[in-house]
């Protein structure tokens, strides 16, 4: 399927063997924070775990930006959460605190191919699905900023403007920054 092909990862050829000494050494030479090895197993902090089942707030399918139709009923007039792939694994309260009440799409601005389609789909959210707001939730690593850039280019080319918020998540799962961008 064309969409699946577009989703193909660009991992091959990077030369990284994450977690080993060579990997760390080579990483510092490259300086890419998005691929930096971080091991928190021994930092002495035990994260609190909620008791009982945490309900999913997902109200739609599909969710990957290549697979979704921007005019699907769940996007009409919706508050949309465009999330970088890694975010939901980093933020403990992602479902109740951020996804609840919103429609979603996910993407990786570093590894996904065919990203010109992303810009066109996001523009269609603004102009055709007439979404209410867009929240772009990304990791703090520089490559993730590409997703915000795509959203802002889509907004600039859209006829209809809506408020766009950017939430930046730290590698420790804490929220580094949350602010509305210029509409």
């Amino acid at each position: 399927m064309a969409e699946n092909k577009a989703r193909k990862r660009k991992m091959s050829g990077t030369g990284w063997t994450l977690g080993d000494e060579k990997g760390r050494k080579d990483m510092s030479a490259c300086g890419c924070p998005g691929s930096q090895t971080i091991d928190r197993r021994m930092d002495g902090k035990e994260a609190e775990t909620p008791t009982g089942k945490v309900a999913s707030q997902l109200r739609q399918w599909p969710i990957q930006l290549h697979l979704i139709g921007p005019n699907a009923p769940y996007y009409q007039g919706a508050d949309v959460l465009l999330t970088a792939d890694c975010v939901a694994y980093a933020v403990g309260g992602y479902h109740p605190e951020y996804l609840k009440g919103k429609s979603i799409a996910i993407a990786c601005p570093k590894l996904d191919e065919g990203q010109d389609v992303y810009e066109e789909k996001i523009r269609a959210w603004f102009d055709e699905a007439k979404i209410n707001t867009l929240t772009v939730m990304i990791m703090e690593v520089p490559c993730c900023g590409g997703l915000s850039a795509i959203a802002q280019r889509a907004l600039a080319s859209a006829r209809r403007k809506v408020p766009v918020k950017e939430i930046i998540v730290g590698l420790d799962g804490d929220i580094r920054q949350e602010e509305w961008l210029k509409a």
């Binding site: 508050d79 979404i131 209410n132 707001t133 929240t135 403007k161 809506v162 408020p163 918020k165 509409a183």
Partner: peptide
């Protein structure tokens, strides 16, 4: 809420 921000923006526009 985000929903209210979007509504306000549309009503002001």
């Amino acid at each position: 809420s985000d929903r209210q921000v979007g509504e306000l923006y549309a009503r002001f526009a």
